[in-house]
Lab assay of single mutants.
Amino acid sequence: GAPPLPPYSAGGREVTMKKGDILTLLNSTNKDWWKVEVNDRQGFVPAAYVKKLDSGTGKELVLALYDYQEK
């Protein structure tokens, strides 16, 4: 199953993602919540729920390892 959710501390809205989604990583300075862009929406997802990909394009991409439903 998915890892436990860290307390929400990102101070911005969250976004929903599905397992297998490829998201653009915008900011990973917060260790628990990373800012991503998905379907032209920006928001935060739990860092433990995604994995960085080596895209080779200069853009940082992450793979959704679990479904996440915004609150």
Rank of each mutant, 00 (worst) to 15 (best):
G1C: 10
G1F: 09
G1I: 07
G1T: 11
G1H: 11
G1M: 12
G1K: 10
G1Q: 14
A2F: 09
A2R: 11
A2Q: 10
A2V: 13
A2S: 12
A2Y: 11
A2K: 10
A2C: 10
A2E: 08
A2H: 12
A2W: 07
A2G: 11
P3T: 04
P3Y: 05
P4K: 06
P4C: 06
P4L: 11
P4Q: 12
L5A: 07
L5S: 07
L5N: 06
L5W: 06
L5P: 08
P6C: 04
P6S: 02
P6T: 02
P7R: 02
P7D: 14
P7N: 10
P7V: 08
Y8G: 15
Y8L: 11
Y8R: 03
Y8P: 06
Y8C: 10
S9H: 12
S9N: 12
S9T: 10
A10E: 08
A10Q: 09
A10N: 09
A10K: 04
A10G: 11
A10M: 14
G11M: 13
G11P: 15
G11D: 15
G12N: 06
G12S: 07
G12V: 07
G12K: 06
G12W: 09
G12C: 07
R13S: 13
R13P: 13
E14Q: 11
E14G: 11
E14F: 07
E14S: 14
V15Q: 05
V15P: 02
V15L: 15
V15C: 08
V15D: 00
T16F: 09
T16R: 09
T16K: 07
T16D: 10
M17F: 09
M17C: 05
M17E: 01
M17Q: 01
M17N: 01
M17A: 04
M17I: 14
M17T: 04
K18A: 08
K18G: 05
K18P: 01
K18L: 09
K18E: 06
K18Q: 09
K19I: 06
K19E: 06
K19M: 06
K19Y: 05
K19R: 12
G20H: 04
G20W: 05
G20L: 02
G20D: 05
G20C: 03
D21S: 06
D21H: 04
D21M: 15
D21E: 12
I22P: 01
I22N: 02
I22Y: 05
I22Q: 04
L23A: 09
L23M: 15
L23G: 13
T24L: 12
T24V: 12
T24S: 14
T24G: 07
T24E: 10
T24K: 12
L25M: 04
L25R: 00
L25I: 05
L25T: 01
L25K: 01
L25D: 00
L26S: 02
L26V: 11
N27T: 07
N27Y: 05
N27M: 08
N27K: 06
S28H: 08
S28L: 04
S28F: 06
S28A: 13
S28Q: 10
T29E: 13
T29I: 10
T29F: 09
T29G: 09
T29L: 10
N30L: 07
N30E: 07
N30Y: 06
N30R: 08
N30M: 07
N30D: 13
N30S: 11
N30Q: 06
N30P: 04
K31P: 13
K31A: 12
K31E: 08
K31D: 15
K31C: 06
D32F: 13
D32C: 07
D32Q: 07
D32P: 01
D32R: 05
W33L: 02
W33H: 01
W33C: 03
W33T: 01
W33Y: 04
W34P: 00
W34F: 06
W34V: 04
W34E: 00
K35N: 06
K35A: 08
K35R: 12
K35L: 13
K35E: 15
K35D: 04
K35V: 11
K35P: 02
V36T: 01
V36I: 08
V36W: 00
V36P: 00
V36G: 00
E37K: 11
E37H: 05
E37W: 06
E37C: 07
E37R: 09
V38D: 10
V38Y: 11
V38N: 12
V38H: 13
V38A: 14
N39K: 10
N39T: 10
D40W: 07
D40V: 07
D40F: 10
D40C: 09
D40S: 12
R41Y: 13
R41V: 14
R41P: 00
R41H: 10
R41N: 13
R41Q: 14
Q42A: 12
Q42F: 08
Q42V: 14
Q42R: 11
Q42H: 09
Q42W: 13
G43M: 06
G43L: 05
G43S: 04
G43P: 01
G43K: 02
G43D: 02
G43I: 06
G43Y: 09
G43E: 03
F44R: 02
F44H: 04
F44I: 05
F44M: 07
V45M: 00
V45H: 01
V45Q: 00
V45F: 00
P46R: 01
P46C: 02
P46W: 02
P46F: 02
P46S: 01
A47E: 03
A47Y: 02
A47W: 01
A47I: 02
A47H: 02
A47L: 01
A47R: 07
A47P: 02
A48C: 06
A48R: 12
A48L: 10
A48D: 08
A48M: 11
Y49D: 01
Y49M: 05
Y49T: 03
Y49F: 15
Y49K: 02
V50Y: 00
V50C: 08
K51F: 09
K51E: 13
K51N: 05
K52T: 08
L53K: 04
D54E: 13
D54A: 09
D54T: 10
D54S: 13
D54G: 14
D54Y: 15
D54P: 14
S55D: 12
S55V: 15
S55R: 09
S55A: 13
S55W: 13
S55F: 12
G56F: 09
G56W: 09
G56V: 13
G56D: 14
G56N: 13
T57I: 09
T57Q: 14
T57F: 15
T57K: 06
G58I: 12
G58P: 11
G58Y: 07
G58W: 08
K59P: 15
K59A: 13
K59E: 12
K59S: 14
E60W: 09
E60N: 12
E60R: 11
L61N: 05
L61K: 10
L61V: 09
V62E: 00
V62Q: 00
V62M: 04
V62P: 00
V62W: 05
V62L: 12
L63T: 07
L63Q: 12
L63P: 00
L63F: 07
L63M: 14
A64E: 00
A64P: 00
A64L: 03
A64V: 09
L65C: 05
L65F: 03
Y66H: 07
D67M: 02
D67E: 05
D67C: 03
D67P: 06
D67T: 05
Y68F: 15
Y68M: 02
Y68K: 03
Y68D: 00
Y68S: 03
Y68E: 00
Q69E: 09
Q69R: 09
Q69C: 08
Q69F: 14
E70P: 15
E70M: 08
K71Y: 15
K71M: 11
K71D: 14
K71W: 10
K71T: 15
K71R: 14
K71E: 09
